[in-house]
Amino acid sequence: MTKPQYRQRSIVQREELSDSYFILWIWDEDMGAMCKPGQFYEIRALAVFEDAPTSVSIPRLFKPISIYDNQGGRIGFMIKRVGLGTNALSKLKAGDTLELIGPAGNGFPIFRDRKILLISGGAGYPPFWYLQKQLIGHNKVYWIHGGASQGDIFPCDEMWTEDGSIGRKGRACDDLEKTLKEREIDLIYSCGPFGLLKEASRISEIYDIEHYCSLEAYMACGIGVCHGCTVPIGSKENWDYLRVCKEGPVFSAKEIRWEIM
């Protein structure tokens, strides 16, 4: 596996998706050749800190952002504004510079000739855009995506919103069992809020369906050094804290010890 590298790259394009989501595009063929779906970069806005007055120039940590798309080196990061770091990223425009560390993490295992369900919630959407491009054509793929409201919803096969503003009213996993049966799903990928992943894992275990979760965690280094982002992985009797940034972010759902998270 490629070791994470440090780069500075200009933003070639900025795309506005909704009130809270935007995409930053960079261009680097080498990086494009290195990365795969499910991996992420630690990214940070370089320009913001150089331009900022002293009073607000305390440098912040990099933020782990999964790869949304990779078109032969045209790499997109679809980002949701949530805190100070992502707000700083949201102020960037074409021509500004991003600092990047990556590609980091293991990525999704890729299969063929399977009946696949993608289930995502909120900011869990982006890595699936890159993933489904590699799955479609070799597999049957059905994608359920849910969010709080219309602004959290992006192209997929089945939409859910908690406020009912678009698609079905409720949460992405509300009708999951029915979908699994009707579509004879034999492989699940999930990414999104803890509650969604835990519920999807509970159901996939009941039906004994292979299931990979992409987990999120607070990170400092992003390269496996600090052990800050760990999650309990293994069997009920024998588990260890593994690093989301290095051994993850993708783990087999049945190995995630949800009961102690």
Binding site: I58, R60, L61, A217, Y218, M219, A220, C226, H227, G228, C229, T230, V231, Y241, I260, M261
Partner: peptide
């Protein structure tokens, strides 16, 4: 190691 979460970035520096 300790039970996560293990990190928090404060206004000025990190808690681990």
């Amino acid at each position: 190691g300790n039970t996560p979460p293990r990190l928090y970035e404060t206004e000025a520096g990190l808690i681990n």
